[in-house]
C-alpha cells in the first residue's frame, strides 16, 4: 500500500484542489458540537475534532431523502407515474472520518447491498464517495471500538487512512479510489509506512473500556428474548430516537408521500425502532406496543440477530454515541455484558 506524506502547510491547498472534482464533506463546528456537513468553498474540515454528535451516515443516507416525484394532476399525461427525484451522484469525498464510522457503513452495506436487492439510493451515494479516514489518537472515554470488532486505526471501509503525525499527516492509500484522490489533491511526497503500527498499538492501549460479546453467537435467541432482565433494563428508557439517530449502524427508514396540491414527492426518512409507530400494523395491532419490547428489539438486533444472520460480529462499532447522548443513561455496554453473561435457567 502506498503511503504519502502530507505536510500540514500543503493540506488546505490540497483540499482546495479537490473541490473541483469532488463534493467535499467533513467535520465542522456547528453550534456547540462537530457535525458532518457538505463543505462550502471557504470551509475546510476541522481535523481537531474528537467525535461528531451524529455519525457521517447521512452523507450516504440522508435523514430525509426524496426518492421519487409524481403528479396527481389527471390533465398531466404522466400523472401517477413515479419518476426519479433529481440526484447528484457526482464524486464526493468525506474527509476526516473516524474508523468506527467507516466500519459502520460496511456493516450497513450488508443490508443495502444483497443478492436479492440493491438499494439504488444508498449504493449510488456510497459508490460515489471516497472515504478519507482520520485515525483516532485520543479516543473518548465512552469509546469501546476495540471490543466491537473495530479500532482506532481500523481500515475497513476507507479509501485512505490518515494518521496525524504533528506537522504532517501520513496517508495510507487503501484503494484505487484513494490513490486517485491523493493524486487529485496534489499530495505526492513519499511517506513513512512504519509510523502506523506503533501508533496503532499506542492508540489501542488508550481504549480501556471493553465489552464482552464472545458468548453471544452461541446463545439461544429465544433464551435471550425471554430473559428476565428486559423490563428492568428498559425502565429508564423514554423511547426517543436519540440512540438510533446517532448510531452509525442504524439503517431503518420510513417511506412517506408528501403532496402539495397535485404534485408530490415520495421521501424516505430515518425511522426508529424505539417508537411504537415503527411496528404498528394497518389492522391496529402492534406486536411491539410495550416499551421493553422495543428496547429489547434494538439490542437483540444489534447484538444477536445481526450476529447470527451475517456472522460478522456485532452490529455495533463501539463509537459510544448512544452512551454519551442517551437522556436516560441507557448504556449498550452494560446491556451487551448482561446478554453475554446470561445463562437461562434449564
Amino acid at each position: 500500500m502506498k503511503v504519502i506524506k502530507i505536510d500540514k502547510n500543503i493540506w488546505a491547498g490540497g483540499i482546495d484542489s479537490l473541490r473541483s472534482g469532488y463534493r467535499l464533506f467533513g467535520p465542522v463546528m456547528q453550534g456547540d458540537a462537530h457535525e458532518y456537513k457538505e463543505l462550502t468553498s471557504d470551509e475546510t474540515p476541522d481535523m481537531a475534532y474528537t467525535n461528531t454528535r451524529l455519525s457521517p451516515k447521512s452523507v450516504v443516507f440522508p435523514q430525509s431523502e426524496p426518492m421519487f416525484t409524481y403528479s396527481l394532476d389527471e390533465n398531466n399525461p404522466e400523472h401517477h407515474i413515479l419518476k426519479d427525484a433529481p440526484k447528484d451522484y457526482s464524486p464526493r469525498a468525506v474527509i476526516g472520518m473516524r474508523p468506527c464510522d467507516a466500519k459502520a457503513l460496511s456493516l450497513v452495506r450488508m443490508n443495502f447491498d444483497t443478492e436479492e436487492y440493491r438499494d439504488p439510493f444508498w449504493m449510488n451515494s456510497y459508490d460515489a464517495t471516497t472515504f478519507v479516514g482520520l485515525a483516532c489518537d485520543s479516543p473518548c472515554e465512552t469509546c469501546f471500538c476495540t471490543s466491537a470488532g473495530c479500532g482506532p486505526y481500523h481500515e475497513e471501509g476507507f479509501d485512505v487512512l490518515l494518521s496525524d503525525c504533528g506537522d504532517a499527516y501520513e496517508a495510507k492509500a487503501l484503494t484505487e479510489k484513494g490513490e486517485k484522490l491523493l493524486a487529485a489533491a496534489g499530495w505526492t511526497a513519499e511517506g513513512d509506512a512504519s509510523v502506523f503500527e506503533p501508533k496503532k498499538a499506542e492508540a489501542e492501549a488508550k481504549i480501556v473500556c471493553k465489552v464482552e460479546s464472545s458468548n453471544l453467537r452461541g446463545k439461544n435467541s429465544l433464551d435471550l428474548y425471554d430473559a428476565p432482565f428486559w423490563k428492568e433494563l428498559s425502565f429508564a428508557c423514554i423511547n426517543c430516537g436519540t440512540c438510533t439517530y446517532a448510531c452509525p449502524t442504524c439503517w431503518c427508514f420510513d417511506i412517506q408521500d408528501e403532496n402539495k396540491g397535485t404534485e408530490g414527492v415520495r421521501m424516505r426518512n430515518w425511522d426508529s425502532c424505539m417508537t411504537s409507530l415503527f411496528t404498528l400494523h394497518g389492522s391496529g395491532h402492534n406486536p411491539r406496543d410495550q416499551k421493553h419490547q422495543r428496547f429489547r428489539q434494538r439490542f437483540m438486533h444489534k447484538l444477536k440477530y445481526f450476529v447470527d444472520k451475517y456472522d460478522k460480529g456485532l452490529m455495533c462499532v463501539g463509537c459510544g454515541r448512544c452512551v454519551q447522548q442517551c437522556p436516560a443513561n441507557i448504556d449498550i455496554r452494560t446491556i451487551c455484558n448482561k446478554m453475554n453473561g446470561y445463562e437461562a435457567a434449564s
Binding site: 457535525e35 451524529l54 435523514q63 423511547n239 436519540t242 439517530y245 426508529s272 437522556p327
Partner: peptide, 23 residues
C-alpha cells in the same frame, strides 16, 4: 440541528397521549 428524535416530548411528563399528533 433538531433531528426529531422526540427526546424532548418523551422526557416530558405532560406528553402521555396514546398517539402523539406527530404520529
Amino acid at each position: 440541528g433538531c433531528t426529531r428524535c422526540y427526546a424532548c416530548k418523551n422526557a416530558c411528563p405532560l406528553c402521555y397521549c396514546p398517539t402523539c399528533f406527530v404520529d
